[in-house]
Computed example of a mutant assay.
Amino acid sequence: MKFEEEADLPEICPDPLPVIVEVLKKYTSYDDVAENLPDIQLIQKKGMLMI
């Protein structure tokens, strides 16, 4: 299932971003983590998604 707000990123990040690790360490419940995870800005250019 694919949602309109989902996107495949053009690169693979082998290590988690530090900001994600901080959220996972700080919050213990699923709801708290979900509410505090940052979102990324995606820019659509010529059929490709850019961060």
Rank of each mutant, 00 (worst) to 15 (best):
D39H: 06
C13W: 14
N36L: 07
P10K: 07
M1Y: 09
P14G: 08
Y27V: 04
K25W: 08
E6R: 05
L17Y: 15
K46M: 02
P18T: 12
P18N: 15
I43K: 02
T28Q: 05
V23L: 06
E5G: 10
I40Q: 07
M48F: 00
V33I: 14
E11F: 13
D39S: 02
K46E: 10
I43C: 07
E22M: 01
Y27N: 02
D39E: 03
N36E: 00
L24Y: 09
E11W: 10
G47R: 00
E35I: 03
E6A: 09
L49F: 05
G47V: 12
M48Y: 00
I51G: 02
I12A: 12
T28N: 12
E6F: 04
P16E: 13
V19I: 10
L42W: 01
D15P: 02
D31F: 06
Q41N: 02
E22Q: 12
Y27C: 01
I51C: 10
P10N: 14
I12K: 15
V33W: 13
M48K: 13
F3W: 02
L42H: 04
P10V: 04
V23F: 03
L17H: 13
M48R: 12
D31P: 02
P14D: 08
I51L: 15
M1V: 11
Y30W: 09
V19C: 11
L24A: 09
E6Q: 12
Q41G: 01
I12C: 09
P14N: 08
S29L: 08
Y27R: 03
D32N: 08
I40W: 01
P38Y: 04
G47K: 00
I40A: 05
M1W: 11
N36I: 03
S29H: 03
N36F: 08
L17D: 15
V19D: 13
A7W: 10
L9E: 11
D15E: 15
I12W: 06
E11Y: 10
D39F: 06
K46W: 00
V21G: 07
P10Y: 11
L9Q: 05
V23A: 15
D31I: 04
Q44M: 00
I20Q: 07
E35N: 05
F3H: 10
V21Q: 06
D8Y: 14
L24E: 13
V21L: 12
P14Q: 08
P38M: 00
E11P: 03
M50S: 08
A34N: 06
I51N: 04
L24G: 11
D31M: 04
C13N: 15
S29Y: 01
K2G: 12
I12R: 13
E4F: 02
P38C: 01
I12T: 13
F3G: 11
A34F: 05
G47S: 06
L37K: 04
P10M: 03
D15I: 15
P10E: 11
Y27P: 02
L9C: 11
A34H: 02
M48W: 00
D32L: 11
I12M: 14
D32E: 14
Y27T: 01
E11C: 06
D8V: 14
M1R: 10
A34R: 05
L24M: 13
P16A: 15
K2S: 12
Y27L: 06
N36A: 09
Q44L: 00
